[in-house]
Design a protein around this nucleic acid. Sequence first.
DNA 1: ATAAATTTTTAGACTAATCTAAAAATAATA
DNA 2: TATTATTTTTAGATTAGTCTAAAAATTTAT
Lengths: 224, 224
Amino acid sequence: MLPNISQTEENYLKAIFNICEKEEKSAGTNDISNEMQTSAASVTDMLKRLSEKKLINYAKYKGVTLTKKGSEVATQLIRKHRLWETFLVEKLQFSWDKVHDIAEQLEHIKAPELVEKLDDFLGNPKFDPHGDPIPDADGKFTYRKQIQLSDAKVGEWGVVVGVQEDSEKFLQYLDKQGLVLGTRIEIIEKFSYDDSIQILLNGEKELVLSDKVSRNLFIQRKNN
Amino acid sequence: MLPNISQTEENYLKAIFNICEKEEKSAGTNDISNEMQTSAASVTDMLKRLSEKKLINYAKYKGVTLTKKGSEVATQLIRKHRLWETFLVEKLQFSWDKVHDIAEQLEHIKAPELVEKLDDFLGNPKFDPHGDPIPDADGKFTYRKQIQLSDAKVGEWGVVVGVQEDSEKFLQYLDKQGLVLGTRIEIIEKFSYDDSIQILLNGEKELVLSDKVSRNLFIQRKNN
DNA sequence: ATAAATTTTTAGACTAATCTAAAAATAATA
DNA sequence: TATTATTTTTAGATTAGTCTAAAAATTTAT
Ligand SMILES: [Mn+2]
Ligand SMILES: [Mn+2]
Ligand SMILES: [Mn+2]
Ligand SMILES: [Mn+2]
C-alpha cells in the first residue's frame, strides 16, 4: 500500500500539514523551507519526490497540499508525537517543557502495535501535556471549543486548556506564573495601550500578561 | 567530546562489539559484512570513517577492535536496547519474542535523560526479558555464572536464566514448551547419538530437546 | 617456497538529501 | 502595461551510505 517513507520525508509531510492547518491554505515552497530550515531548492527536490510517491498534490509554481495518503501519514505522526509526550510527562516525570524534542525522535519509530499498546497503557488520552488533541487510531481529532486568552472579554472567565507554542522558554514562563493546564482565569482588565491583560489566577493571584503570552494561551470559556 | 555518530555508524559499532565479544577476537571485514548484511566494500568504507572518528582501531588488512570511546558508545546502545525491551514486555505487555526489532529502532533515540528516567521507571532492572544483563549508566554489566544447557551433566539441575538467540522462532518454541525464564530443569539423560537431551521441567513434565535448542539455552547450575 | 584460495581494499557508480548561484515564472507596483 | 520585486525552479556540487567488479594483500595448501 504505502511506499517506504524516510524520516526526512515524514518531517516534510508534517511541516506541510502544519502550514495548511494553521494558515488554512496550500503550502508554498518558501513556507516549507522556512518551517524545515532548509533551502528552497531542497524543498523543490523533496516536493518532486513526495509527489512521485503520491503523498502531495504538486504542480510547479503552485503551492502544495497533502493527498489523502499524505494526510494520513502526517496524522499518524502527530498521534505518535503526542502519545510519546504524554508518556514522558505522565510516566517518566518529565516536565512539559522538556518533552517536545524527544518526541520529535520517538514519533519516527515504525511499529503500529507499539502505538496502540502505548495508547492503552496511557489510558487512551484525548489530549497531550500541552493540551493538544491526540488523534485516535483512525485519525480523528477530538474537537474542543477554545479561544485565545487574548480574545476573552473583561469579566469573563475560563480554564486554561492549551498552549499555541511549545517552546521551552514559554512553557517555563507559564510554570513560574502557575499557569498550568486547568488553571481558572478571570479577566480583570485589558489595556489597549500594549494589549496586555490583567487576570485573576484561581481566584487568588492577580497578574498582568503581555499580548504575546495571551495570544499563545488557549482557554475554554465558562459562562455565568 | 564525542563526534556526532549516525544511526548507521552506531549499528556498525554494535556489530563489532558483538563479534569481539562472542569470538573473543578482533573483527574481520567479512565478519562485519556478514553481521550487517552489507558488502565487504561497504564495510571497508565505514571502517575508514569510524577510524577517522577514533571509534575503532583500524589498520588495513588487520582486523578491527573498538577504542575506549567506541566501546562506550556500543555499551550505551546495548543498555538502551535492553531497557526498551524490558519496557515493552513489563509495561506494554509485549511477548518476549516481539520486542527485539522494535528495540532496534528505539536504541537509537538520543536523549541521555530519557535513558536514566526509563531505568528508574522500570526499577533499575539488571536483566532484560531474554536474561541478558543490562549495563548500568557507567557501562558495568552484572556478571552471572551460567552455562549452556548442553554442558550440564546427567543428574544435575538448574534454572533457565537466559537465551543465546532472540529470534522469534526460537522464543516461540520455548513458549510452547513452557521453557520460560525461571523454569527448573533437571537433566535426565543425554543421547550421544544426536546430542539431544532429556530433561524434567519444573519436576512435572519430561521432554527431549535438540542439540540446537540446548546450546541456545543458559541455565544457572544449582548444587545439592 | 610456489601456487591456490581467501580476504580485503580500490575503482567507479548510484541514490537521498542537502547546498549555492543563476535562471525562469509569477506577483506586485508604478 | 511595463517594470520591479518576490517566489520558485534548475544547474551543478557535495556528503553519507551503498553497490559490483576488479585488483591487491594475506593465508592456506601443495
Ligand atoms: Mn511537541
Ligand atoms: Mn504537544
Ligand atoms: Mn534484542
Ligand atoms: Mn534481549
